[in-house]
Design a protein around this nucleic acid. Structure first.
Lengths: 116, 116
DNA sequence: TTCATGTGTCAGATAATCCTGACATGTATC
DNA sequence: GATACATGTCAGGATTATCTGACACATGAA
């Protein structure tokens, strides 16, 4: 997501990265998840109970957010051997303007996104 | 979309409005449309040829953008009696941060958006 | 009238997203 | 072992979003 010292805008993000971030944000559940995590880190099972969402669904949304670089997940071991996956918001700043968008669009690929 | 003098962020937008704007932006075609229109206003048939998109499809995307307040359409009459619908980008500035999102989420409705 | 231009809309197919209910893995406790 | 809690994944259904190919209506010019 790129975190500069002062005022970064969308520059620094490729068109594809911008699109991925916007797609991740374009969902009420994911916005709520970000809002809750902004209040403090949490692990997925607890968070699922917190916001009354099925765990598999929450898992999917968190992956989408993490793929966009908006949250960061860390697998930790509790005092007991329990594996806990904690998520927290990744500090970000996106300054969306017509100019910034026009700039980012220059580096938008056709969609043949591979990656595997 | 709210256009203040200096630095407005997402505040001033309700959660629903923010979600609508993000959803409108979360599409490669619509980003491209914004980028092209940022270079100058245009009417839909011409724009459709420009970006090689079917007119009904472009029409739909433009409606989505207009509903989000990102573009403005004006129906004008050319010198001949032809009705031309010109679109232009509405100047906007969205400062997306975890804080701003958490703030906007407070005014997010459950989804029962009526309006008719 | 016919052709070329512009507008808008609609039904239906395709594609993507979202969501649920399993299932499998692991550890610690009763 | 059975229970409780954590993790991840998958198949399939339900719901949206996207897109195309018509259709409608206008105007001006040949």
């Amino acid at each position: 997501m790129k975190e500069s010292s002062d005022a970064d805008e969308v520059m620094g993000l490729t068109g594809d990265e911008l699109l991925r971030a916007l797609s991740a944000l374009a969902n009420p559940h994911r916005l709520r998840i970000l809002a809750v995590l902004h209040g403090g880190r949490d692990y997925v099972s607890h968070l699922a109970r917190e916001i009354q969402m099925s765990r598999p669904l929450l898992h999917m949304h968190l992956q989408r957010l993490e793929a966009a670089g908006l949250v960061v997940g860390t697998l930790e071991l509790s005092d007991e051997g329990k594996a806990m996956k904690y998520y927290e918001v990744a500090p970000f700043l996106m300054r969306l303007t017509p100019e910034a968008i026009a700039e980012a669009v220059k580096t938008l690929t056709d969609g043949e996104g591979d990656g595997s």
